[in-house]
Design a protein around this nucleic acid. Structure first.
Lengths: 346, 346
DNA sequence: CCCCGTGGCTAAACTGATTTAGCAGAGCAT
DNA sequence: ATGCTCTGCTAAATCAGTTTAGCCACGGGG
């Protein structure tokens, strides 16, 4: 069982036409709902009936050979696995594609130029109608020239070429998160746990951190405040957040709140606070970015500005297929309010 | 830029043939490396040279119209997003597919019958060469009849039909994990945090828990021991692991080690232990299953039997395309040894 | 009575590959 | 000279659709 050709024995347009007692031309026109054809109402009925009875479905390969449309789009990313990030992007893209009767061909470059070339060729060989070129970390990248021959949308990335792009609104998220603290009465004792300045400044690595920081500083200075302290990490991992939080706690002036540049760092910060016998949020409030699943699992739940992956994936496909958006699209990062923020204790 | 047809202006086989001064037939045969053709060495050279110069790449739609092979396989799953599980499966599948010059068309049913029908039709319309039908939780499912016409491999699932399948070796993982505790001297004070018996017994929901438990019990009884206590959860979330751990701690006889049915439960258990002032592993050892990223982030790192997602995705595609494996394939779940296991203190 | 327009439909070309059937010429034996 | 085989190659069919060009019948106007 199942070792045969997939979907052989399918009825063809010729079968439908024959059964309807009409030509292939007529059948094709009716089934494609062509305007301006002068086929009778009765002919329409017969074709629809025949197609229905035979369970006719057009062969996409044959159609696209003629029309050069495949109703297929390529989703090319640098890294799909490892990160749950990808899941959301793909899911959103998949939903939007389905709504438009398209399917998704996926490929991963793994940041390797040869793989990338190969993947792009494979996609072009299959005549995809467009490409969503996605990066897993928000960053600047260079688009392989081959795909510039057709529609492209950058997802979570920018590039020197002026292409349509979809990005999370990190700067606004910075403002949102900071405002959440200000509203509860924090002001002059807000500390930051972020990433190493070197990496943070390289747009090929990440644009997110910079944008978030801009939003944070802007909001603070509008309130007449500045950061109490900043601790930097060499990477976005909990262990670094842990170390950074410990460093912050050694200083004489303990912060009333900490903004972490992402949830994994915040998790590390929680661990350090727990060890130090400090409670969130009564001793120190914590806010963060991403809404990694872990944010909901922490005790107390971590308030964080959510990366809207599904929305982003969806928007990218919408723009690709519906072709709006000359401006870069900034997708808002909503604040998930949980229990990690309270009024300062002192 | 970029609003045109993707990859128009491509050289066709006819172009290559013309440039080589030969017929399309000759060009086709040479490029496909057909044996037994009597074309001269010189003809071969000319065709290769012409193809090279023109940057010729065959049009997959045209080819598959004739051959009914698309070098494309469908990856259909119930849920791709949310879970990082999917990422690994897809990545492994993608790698194996690339090695065989195939690409992946992905679709998600979201557990909805209508979506599923739609997705399957869309795949069959595109003449995929085979289908990997994946479930996000290891379980039994019913395969839609439409895809049984061609090659299918079940990934992380079983079904009544006797189809090739790839599953994690949960039972062996149960043995592995238990043995890790026995080796350190735990024996009569091992507790379990698992899931609600009701759900655990329904193979449509999950097969993993049962298999893991079988492995655990088997290993214990071979050592002449039984579980000290069992605590059950209504779902696989940290908060339930937290509650379960608290329950275990209220009992008079405190366990020396706890086996959690997955890492999220273990995370909850860690939280309860931390609050109770108990240290891992000096007061209580913890082992678990899955190797969720969080396992590495916990302090101390959690020893856990890893779900080999990439391996599984890879194997599924290998079986689909290379067509071996009449037996179900059980992929081993290696133990990631971290610091959560020590000798019992008492 | 002839011409023209229009309604209703179809034959055939076309997309770009693979594959089948077979042709032309050379070399050899009869 | 004739027939046969073998070498080296090609014309044409085929896959399943879309699209172009145009046929035929009928009705009305001049």
């Amino acid at each position: 069982m199942g070792r045969g050709q997939m979907g052989r024995n399918r009825a063809t347009l010729a079968d439908v036409a024959q059964r309807a007692g009409l030509s292939k031309t007529a059948a094709s026109m009716v089934l494609n709902g062509r305007e301006g054809t002068r086929l009778s109402a009765e002919a329409h009925q017969r074709v629809f009936a025949a197609a229905e009875e035979l369970g006719y479905r057009p062969n996409v390969a044959a159609r696209s050979l003629r029309t050069r449309k495949t109703a297929t789009i390529a989703f090319v990313s640098d890294i799909v696995a490892t990160t749950r990030f990808a899941g959301g992007l793909i899911r959103g893209a998949l939903d939007a594609a389905r709504e438009r009767d398209h399917v998704l061909l996926i490929a991963e470059t793994q940041g390797d130029a040869a793989f990338e070339r190969y993947a792009i060729e494979a996609m072009l060989d299959r005549q995809v109608d467009g490409v969503v070129y996605a990066a897993m970390a928000t960053r600047r990248l260079t688009v392989p020239p081959a795909i510039l021959s057709g529609p492209v949308v950058l997802l979570n990335a920018t590039s020197p070429e002026d292409l349509p792009r979809v990005l999370p609104d990190d700067e606004r998220a910075g403002r949102t998160v900071t405002t959440a603290l200000l509203d509860r009465g924090h002001r002059d004792r807000i500390a930051l746990i972020g990433r190493n300045r070197l990496k943070e400044r390289d747009p090929e690595v990440s644009l997110a951190a910079q944008a978030r920081l801009r939003g944070i500083r802007e909001t603070l200075s509008a309130a007449g405040a500045t950061l109490l302290a900043e601790a930097f990490c060499s990477d976005w991992l909990p262990e670094h957040g842990y170390a950074a939080m410990r460093t912050l706690l050694t200083k004489p002036d303990r912060p009333s709140a900490v903004i972490c540049m992402n949830d994994r760092l915040a998790f590390g910060a929680y661990q350090a606070l727990g060890e130090a016998g400090l409670a969130v949020p009564t001793d120190i409030s914590v806010v963060s970015f991403d809404d990694d699943p872990i944010a909901a699992w922490l005790r107390p739940g971590l308030s964080t500005a959510a990366l809207p992956h599904e929305q982003m994936g969806r928007r990218a496909v919408e723009i690709l297929l519906d072709g709006r958006a000359t401006e870069p699209v900034l997708v808002p990062m909503p604040l998930r309010r949980r229990r990690s923020v309270a009024a300062p204790s002192a």
